[in-house]
Nucleic acid binder design. Structure first.
Lengths: 155, 155
DNA sequence: TATTTTCCCATGATATACCATATTTATAAT
DNA sequence: ATTATAAATATGGTATATCATGGGAAAATA
């Protein structure tokens, strides 16, 4: 059993007519090693799909459960947005998951999807949207840290 | 055997003339895997039905039992409302439960029911009421976490 | 006996498991 | 470095199992 895991890298895979996509092999290895499951939901902050291990959400659920606000309104609200949208996405023997229409629509994905590692989480983007988002992020970071510009070669 | 158990997703099922509803398959899998039972009761805070595993209520009872507020009026009141109202809802071989009139009436459910995952709990709503509630929650959460709005994609 | 409740079967729709081929990546040999 | 060979991955297609749901028979209740 591995000690650490991180969703990394950026890989583009095809989405077929039924909504099936190959989960990147590295991601599958993480699922296998941790014995957990992939869970996906619509990002609250961007037009993309977000994914993580069920373990992560389970931790969240446990925290809420123990916070003694068992019947509090705010807890209800937060847990709704997360758990009401999330769903398990197990992959078949060939390594594919089947994304729901709801998710595909939210991320404007049709026949191609970009998996972007985010450490404990990952995101799935429409390729064009991701290109823009990546540019946005780079610009943002350079604005805040002009020193980086000097070092920076091109990719 | 799975490590984690979470009620997730939002699914709409029909309620037939006899009051039968299919419990979402994922929920049934949880019941099966844990060997526990589904327990439902009228939500204290909203016009909906609330459900969870009997295990969870047992944990709640234990927590109350051990808490310093064991003799507080408030705790007494809450536990009265919950335990006095809760009841087991086993599902048949086709995966359906039969909700009581009391519950259906409280949630204003007639021929369609929305199951909303809440992590360790779930709720069952009348579709129209749920639509309103979801809108309310989104507005509420965005108000409290403006950062989400700022980054925001559309939708 | 009338009414309700609990099972069980039937069916269309959908998701899942599986097989086959293509493509890519890694490994070894020259 | 180049080519050959092998392994792993991605993807298309199809069969199979599962699910939601309608209907009805048997059992229980009043």
């Amino acid at each position: 059993m591995r000690k650490t895991f991180l969703f990394m890298d950026t890989v583009t895979n095809k989405v077929d007519a039924k909504g099936r996509v190959s989960l990147p092999a590295d991601y599958r290895a993480i699922v296998k090693d941790t014995g957990s499951e992939i869970v996906c939901y619509r990002s609250l902050s961007a037009p993309c799909i977000e994914g993580c291990l069920e373990d992560l959400l389970d931790k969240l659920a446990t925290d809420m459960e123990n916070s003694l606000d068992f019947f509090s309104q705010e807890q209800d609200d937060i847990s709704n947005l997360v758990f009401g949208d999330a769903k398990r996405y197990p992959f078949d023997s060939t390594g594919r998951i089947m994304l729901s229409d709801k998710l595909l629509k939210h991320a404007q994905i049709k026949d191609s999807a970009v998996f972007v590692g985010k450490g404990r989480k990952f995101q799935i983007w429409n390729p064009e949207n991701w290109a823009k988002e990546e540019a946005r992020i780079r610009a943002e970071v350079l604005k805040k840290r002009p020193s980086l510009k000097a070092q920076g070669g091109k990719e």
